[in-house]
C-alpha cells in the first residue's frame, strides 16, 4: 500500500465469530469494513469469487453494501460466508487468506487494500485412536427416505369438503330447496315448484297453479293481495318491479278466470308464461 493509497483508504477491519471451537463443516461469516474517501468506488471484479478458496475452505457467498462513513467518504461492508472442511487431527490454528480490494476514482487513480484475514482454532471431531468398542472406520448410517405425511393433504381435503357442504346448504337455503322449502321468506320459490308441476295440467291445473301463485303474493305482501294493490306492493318490494307488466297480466288473467264468464283462462295467460313468471319471481325474491 502506498502512502497516497493509505490516505484514500482508511482502516480495513475484519470481524468474525468466536475464533475457536470451529469444526469440520462449520459455516462462519466474516464482516469486513473499509472506509474510502469520497469519489472512490470499489471495483467489483476485485472481490474474491465464490468457490473453493483453498484445499479445505470454501467461500459460499459474498455480499457488498455501502453506506456513509463518518468523514464524508463511503464505508463498504463486505460480508463473506465461508465453510471449512478441514479435518483436524488435533486443535490447530487455521487462517482465512486475505483478499485484495481495489478502489478507483473517476480520474483513473487506484488504491488497493488487503482485508479479510482471519485466524481461528479448529478442533477435531473424533480422537485419533478409535473410540473403545467402535470400529475404526465405522460410518454413520445412511439417511433413510421418510414416508410422506398425508396429514396436511387430508386436513385440506376435509376442510374443502366441509366448505362444499356449507356452500351447498347456503345455496339450498337461498333457493328454498329441501330441507328449507318451507322457508317463510321464500313463498315464490315454493309457488314456482307448485306452478311448474300444475300449470300444464289443463284448466284445473292452471287454476291450482294460479292459486298457488296468489298464495305466494299474499305471503309476500303479508295480506290478501288484489289486482289493485299490486302497484303499492311493488313500491314496498322494488325487487319485483322488473316484472310489473307480467304481474299485471297475471292478475288480469286470474280475475277473468275466477270471476269472469267462464272464459278459457289458459288462453289469456298460457301455462308457459305462468311458469316463467313464477320462476322469475322466485329469482327476484332471492335478491331481496
Amino acid at each position: 500500500m502506498t502512502g497516497a493509497a493509505a490516505a484514500q483508504v482508511r482502516g480495513a477491519e475484519t470481524f468474525g465469530p468466536r475464533p475457536f471451537g470451529v469444526l469440520l463443516g462449520d459455516v462462519f461469516t466474516l464482516k469486513t469494513y473499509v472506509d474510502v474517501d469520497a469519489g472512490f468506488q470499489l471495483d467489483p471484479s476485485s472481490l474474491p469469487k465464490v468457490g473453493p478458496v483453498s484445499y479445505s475452505l470454501d467461500l459460499r457467498r459474498i455480499d457488498v453494501t455501502d453506506g456513509a462513513a463518518p468523514n464524508g467518504g463511503v464505508r463498504y461492508q463486505i460480508t463473506a460466508e465461508y465453510q471449512t472442511f478441514y479435518s483436524a487431527l488435533e486443535t490447530k490454528e487455521e487462517t482465512v487468506p486475505p483478499f485484495t480490494l481495489a478502489f478507483a476514482d473517476g480520474g483513473g487513480k487506484r488504491a488497493e487494500v488487503q482485508a479479510g484475514r482471519w485466524s481461528y482454532l479448529t478442533s477435531p471431531l473424533r480422537p485419533i485412536a478409535s473410540v473403545s468398542g467402535e470400529q475404526q472406520y465405522g460410518l454413520r448410517p445412511d439417511a433413510e427416505p421418510h414416508a410422506i405425511s398425508l396429514r396436511r393433504a387430508q386436513i385440506l381435503t376435509g376442510l374443502a369438503g366441509g366448505a362444499t357442504l356449507f356452500a351447498l346448504a347456503l345455496l339450498a337455503w337461498s333457493r328454498a330447496w329441501p330441507p328449507f322449502h318451507r322457508r317463510p321468506a321464500r313463498p315464490f320459490a315454493t309457488a314456482a315448484r307448485a306452478v311448474r308441476k300444475a300449470a300444464g295440467a289443463g284448466e284445473a291445473g292452471w287454476r291450482a297453479a294460479a292459486l298457488a301463485l296468489h298464495r305466494a303474493f299474499d305471503a309476500a305482501a303479508g295480506k290478501r293481495l288484489f289486482g289493485d294493490d299490486v302497484a303499492a306492493f311493488l313500491k314496498t318490494r322494488p325487487a319485483f318491479a322488473r316484472h310489473e307488466a307480467a304481474i299485471a297480466a297475471f292478475f288480469d288473467a286470474s280475475r277473468r278466470a275466477f270471476f269472469g264468464e267462464g272464459a278459457n283462462a289458459a288462453a289469456a295467460l298460457p301455462p308457459e308464461q305462468l311458469t316463467r313468471l313464477a320462476r322469475d319471481l322466485a329469482q327476484a325474491e332471492r335478491a331481496t
Partner: peptide, 26 residues
C-alpha cells in the same frame, strides 16, 4: 341484490374446485 342471489352458487363452485384440487393432491 344480484350479489346476494349470485353469491351462493359462486361459493359452491369455488368450494367444489377447492375440493377437487385438494382431493387430487391427496
Amino acid at each position: 341484490g344480484t350479489l346476494k342471489s349470485a353469491l351462493p352458487p359462486a361459493l359452491l363452485l369455488a368450494a367444489l374446485v377447492a375440493l377437487g384440487v385438494a382431493g387430487w393432491r391427496l
